[in-house]
Amino acid sequence: MTASGDGYRGIVKRRFVLLLAALAAVVAALMLDVGWGPSAFAWQDVLRGLFDRESLTAAQKVILWDIRLPQALLAVLVGAALGLSGAQLQTVLNNPLASPCSLGLTAAATVGAALAIIGGWHAGGPGQHVMIPLLSFACTLAAAWLILVLARLFGARPEMVVLFGIALFFLCNALVALLQYLAAADALQQVVFWTMGSVTRASWIKNGILAAALALLLPWILRDAWRLTAMRAGEEHAASLGIPTERLRLVCLVRASLLAALAVSFAGAIAFIGLVGPHLARLVFGEDHRFYLPGSAAAGALVLSLAAIASKALVPGAVLPIGIVTALAGIPLLVTLLFMQRRRS
């Protein structure tokens, strides 16, 4: 036993408790989100209905099990996926501004969704729930693949990946603008709505896919926790430990892209969660990636779940697209977090 070792063990214990508290906060936000809505639905009925579905009326069953619960769960899962995606990107690109959004992945998803909508697959029926997510997922993966190929060709250095991401962001925005210019009025309206991001497209299948992806990817990501922690000393220091930094960066890009692609293809373009989640986690848990990575997922889930509640609470009787809320709240939140980090250091 050593004094520094004992002190560090105390810090680790405190972080573990904080992580449990963050998970409890996510569950609390989820419950609040489930209980909050424009229809008159008493809290005790909601709680009872969660455990005893048959005790609800037919209308209550639809509201709770087909609308509120899938939507609230999608907010939590999308937030966790974006937070986890952004946390990996910020570490391996050594850039606190890296996120699925700033690398152009969200913009690529929008291209896919716009193609599906303008191609006529949005107008009701199963196509709406299959083709839009499918094409936006395919476009996000294609964008990630393009970044990976270029990064491999040019040596996968962080600044190159960020530059390719920025170029891709502008390219995708130009493509979306072109598609919007060519689109009919109703399709244009759909594309614009999609870009605002929303959890109203939730379904149990989408939640199942996203939950499975998180359950598979999180343990894989956590296996690299020490190597990612060591990366925070800088590229050369990590390489000197025998960490294959370029390969680790490419693997993290693949995992981050998969998470971001699933999240945005199901919920649309949601900004700032992939950026704010990791910053919030860094402030609370530090940068030991055993805590920072799950902490980023929890922070992303919490922020998006709270945004989902706000989207229902801000305008009585109406549900705002969640992307508008995250964008509006994201900027002051990010500035506050950066200010707090600066004050701390």
Partner: peptide, 15 residues
Amino acid sequence: SSLLAYELILGSARA
């Protein structure tokens, strides 16, 4: 970085 000196040393050893 916000890593503690101790955990950077520990993290490198573990990595």
